[in-house]
């Protein structure tokens, strides 16, 4: 397997992800997958071009995505990919205890303790939850 080409130079160095929590790494991966879809889907790409926004270097995005996936770790990557395959987006924000993926109200016990590095999933849809 080839070494990722991202970043290409020191001034492009990504933020230090070592201190990111497991959930932060998963959310970043989800962000990159949303961006990948946006910059590869033909209809979406056509809209971007019409707006005058360039998205030509998707290889860099692929490399960044591969790096992010590796940082998530095998255990959560399986759950992530399963939810992504099923719903398109594997992570759902939570507002007022409601999963914005399936709109089910979550039990009060579902929220992880403040500062805990626990990753939680929606009991109803299985998406990984981002408590906002």
């Amino acid at each position: 397997m080839g070494h990722p080409t991202y970043p290409r130079s020191a001034d492009e160095a990504p933020a230090s992800t070592e201190r990111w929590t497991p959930l932060s790494r998963i959310v970043h991966l989800n962000d990159l997958d949303l961006l990948t879809r946006e910059t590869t889907d033909p209809a979406s790409l056509a809209r971007l071009k019409k707006l005058g926004l360039a998205a030509e270097d998707t290889e860099r995005l692929k490399a960044a995505r591969a790096q992010a996936a590796q940082s998530v770790g095998a255990r959560w990557l399986v759950a992530y990919e399963r939810a992504r395959q099923r719903y398109g987006s594997a992570v759902a924000a939570v507002r007022d205890r409601v999963c914005l993926g399936c709109f089910v109200t979550l039990p009060t016990t579902a929220r992880p303790r403040s500062g805990a590095e626990t990753v939680t999933t929606c009991e109803s849809c299985g998406r990984i939850l981002f408590w906002g």
Binding site: Y6, E12, P14, A15, T17, V27, H28, N30, D31, L32, L34, L35, E38, T39, L51, G52, L53, A54, A55, E56, D57, T58, R60, L61, A64, V91, A92, A93, F130, G132
Partner: peptide, 26 residues
């Protein structure tokens, strides 16, 4: 970090002194 990656995929400058960096995220 997402905005930085987006800029590497392609500049978000429209010309005439305007840029529209963008991000969709939870």
């Amino acid at each position: 970090e997402l905005l930085r990656v987006r800029e590497r995929v392609g500049s978000t400058a429209l010309g005439k002194g305007v840029a529209i960096p963008s991000a969709r995220s939870v």
